[in-house]
Design a protein around this nucleic acid. Structure first.
Lengths: 333, 333
DNA sequence: TTGTACGCGTTATCAG
DNA sequence: CTGATAACGCGTACAA
C-alpha cells in the first residue's frame, strides 16, 4: 500500500508537502495541491490511521463496551452510538462485556491499548473504584446506564426508581389492587432500584405487596414464563403483573395465555424498556420507554467532547426519566 | 501513559529486553523477566496497539460492515462475529453501511485506513467489481450474505432460492392452494431469489401465482401491515401468506388479526430469518431458520485465517441452506 | 511556498 | 542472554 513517501516521490515534492495537502494544511501552492491530489488518487493512497494515531496521540475512534450485541436493548444502544460517531467521522471499537468482571475488564483494557481517548462503557460487573480509576485515566470515559456519584458528570443514566413508581402507579390508577412483580434474579442495581420504586408507589397507595407476590428469575422470556408459572402454582392472586423488562413481560404473557388467562381482560401486564418486541407481541405491550438510543447518542457526544479536551462541567449529571407507553396489555378494572 | 522506554529505564535494561518480555520472547533471564514484569505492573504499562500495528503491519483487529445495528438480524450477525473474535483476542471495528453505496464505501475505506487485514462485510449496495477489487487488496476480506462467483472462496452466503422453495413447499404440503406473497420493495438480490424459489415450488405443484397475489413493501413490520392491507383491499383470496422476513410476517399477522382473521385457522403465515421475534410473537411464527450466527462465525474465522497468510482454497465456497422451523402460524387445510 | 529532520512507541536485526 | 539501532508511516517545528 502506497505511503506518503511514495506519493512524494511520484509527485516530485517532499513528504511535508504531501502531508500538508492531506490535512488541508495552510501553505501549499494551488497547482502543487492539485497535482499531489491526483497522484494520491491514482495510486490509491490511504493514510495509515495507526501511524497517524501514533504521532498525533489521538485516534479518531471511540471504544464501546456493552453486555451483549444480541440483546435488542444493547443493539439499540449501539445504534445510538453509531449514528452519532458516524456524523463525527469516528470509528467504533466494539466489545462485549457479558456482565462479567473479567470480560468487562479485558474489554476496557484492550480499548486502552488502542489508545482511544473516548469510550462509552456499560459496566455492571466492575466496582465503582475501578471505573473511577479508568475515568481518571481516560479523558473521554463515559458510563452509560450507571451512576457513580464521584464521577457524576461522566454518567448518563436512567432514574430506575422513578420508572418503578411510574409502572406501579399506572396500574394502581387503573384500579388494580393485587399486584405481582417478576424481577431479575441478578444482583445488580437495576432490579433493586425498580423494585424500590414499585414499593414506594404501592405503599403510597396504602396497599401491601407480600413477598410471595414477587418472583425472581432470569431477565428473559423464559424467566418470565417460569416466574408466572411459579406464581400460578403457588396460587398467588393478582390482576396485574409488573415485569423487570419487556422480555420477561412477553414470557409472562405467553404463559398466562397458555393458561387461558386473557390479557388484559383478566390480568394486566406492564413491561420495562420499550424494546422493539414490545410493539411486536400481542397484545401490544404497555411498557416504560427507556430512551436508550437518545442516551447513547448523548453519551457518545460527551465522550467525544471530553476526549477533545473540553473538561466536563462539575456537579452536573445526565439523568433521564422513563415514560409510560400505553398500549394494549393493561385494562381498567 | 508509560511507554516501553520508561519501563526500560526504571528496570535498568534496554528497550529490546522489555520488548522481549512483553512478547514472551525467547531469550531473557528468568529474574530479569520477573523484575521487568513487576515494573510493568507497577507503572500500569499497556502496549500501544497503534505503534505495534505500525511496525508489524498486523492489527489484531477485524473490521465489520453491516447494514444496521438495530435490526435483530444484524445484531445476531454481529454477535456471531464477536464471539469468535473474542476467542482469538481480536478487536472489532464496527461500521454500519445502511445499504447505501456511499456509506458502505466509506465504511470499508475507513477500515482500510486502520489497516485491518481481516474484514467481514455485508454489502448490498456496492457492485461486484468494487468488492472484487477490495478482495484483491485485502487478504482477509470476506463477504457475508452475498455470492460473487469470481471470489467464491471469500463468500459465506445463504441459498435463498432453496429457502423460497422450502417455505412454499411447506404450505403446499399442508394443503394450501391459494398463496399470497409479501416481498421487499428493495431491488437487491435476496427478494428476487426468494421469490424465484417460491415460484419454482408453486409451479412444480401445478398451481399458479397471479401477480396480484404478490405485494411489495418495505421489509419491516409496517411493510407487512400495508402489504396485507393492500391484499385485503383488493379482495385477493389466500389461505397462506409467505413473507419476505419475520418482521413483515409479524406485521402481516397483526393486520390479519385486526381484521378478525384468525391465524392459522383461516390464514397461515410463514416468515423468513428466524430472528428472535419469531419466538416472541403470537402465534409463534413458523419460519425459515437463517443460520446467520453460525455463518458469521464462519466468516470471521475465514477472515482471520486468510489474513494470517493462509491462502483461500480455490473453487470452494461457503453456501448454507435454511431449514424450516415449524411453530404455530401454519395450519393444515 | 517548500523541504529537512526529528519523534511518536514498537518490533526486529544485528552485534556483543 | 542482552543491548544498540534501524525501520514502520506520519505530523510538525524549523529552515530555506
Amino acid at each position: 500500500m502506497a505511503t506518503i513517501k511514495d506519493i512524494a516521490n511520484a509527485a516530485g515534492v517532499s513528504l511535508a508537502t504531501v502531508s500538508r495537502v492531506i490535512n488541508d494544511g495552510p501553505k501549499v501552492g494551488k497547482e502543487t495541491r492539485e497535482r499531489v491530489k491526483n497522484i494520491m488518487r491514482e495510486m490509491g493512497y490511504r493514510p495509515n490511521a495507526n501511524a497517524r494515531a501514533l504521532v498525533t496521540k489521538r485516534s479518531a475512534s471511540l471504544g464501546v463496551v456493552i453486555a451483549e450485541l444480541l440483546d435488542p436493548f444493547f443493539a439499540t444502544l449501539a445504534h445510538g452510538i453509531e449514528t452519532t460517531t458516524r456524523q463525527h467521522n469516528v470509528q467504533i471499537l466494539m466489545s462485549a462485556g457479558s456482565i462479567a468482571r473479567e470480560t468487562e475488564l479485558k474489554a476496557i483494557e484492550t480499548l486502552l491499548e488502542h489508545r482511544c481517548e473516548a469510550m462509552v462503557v456499560h459496566s455492571k460487573a466492575l466496582d465503582d473504584d475501578t471505573l473511577i480509576e479508568f475515568a481518571q485515566q481516560v479523558p473521554g470515559f463515559v458510563l452509560i446506564n450507571r451512576h457513580i456519584k464521584k464521577i457524576s458528570n461522566r454518567c448518563v443514566w436512567l432514574d430506575n426508581e422513578a420508572g418503578g413508581r411510574l409502572m406501579a402507579e399506572h396500574v394502581l390508577h387503573q384500579g388494580h389492587k393485587k399486584l405481582a412483580v417478576i424481577s431479575s434474579k441478578y444482583r445488580i442495581d437495576d432490579p433493586v432500584e425498580r423494585l424500590t420504586g414499585i414499593r414506594q408507589a404501592i405503599q403510597a397507595a396504602g396497599i401491601s405487596l407480600p413477598d410471595e407476590n414477587i418472583e425472581f428469575a432470569s431477565p428473559d422470556q423464559e424467566g418470565g414464563e417460569t416466574a408466572i408459572q411459579n406464581l400460578l402454582t403457588r396460587g398467588v392472586e393478582f390482576s396485574a403483573v409488573l415485569a423487570y423488562n419487556d422480555a420477561m413481560a412477553s414470557g409472562a404473557m405467553t404463559m398466562l395465555l397458555d393458561h387461558n388467562i386473557p390479557i388484559p381482560a383478566q390480568v394486566s401486564v406492564v413491561g420495562y424498556d420499550d424494546v422493539i418486541l414490545a410493539k411486536y407481541c400481542r397484545p401490544k405491550l404497555t411498557t416504560l420507554h427507556y430512551p436508550i438510543e437518545l442516551m447513547a447518542s448523548k453519551a457518545a457526544e460527551l465522550a467525544l467532547l471530553y476526549a477533545s479536551g473540553i473538561r466536563p462541567q462539575e456537579g452536573i449529571t445526565y439523568k433521564y426519566t422513563p415514560t409510560i407507553v400505553k398500549r394494549e396489555s393493561v385494562a381498567r378494572i
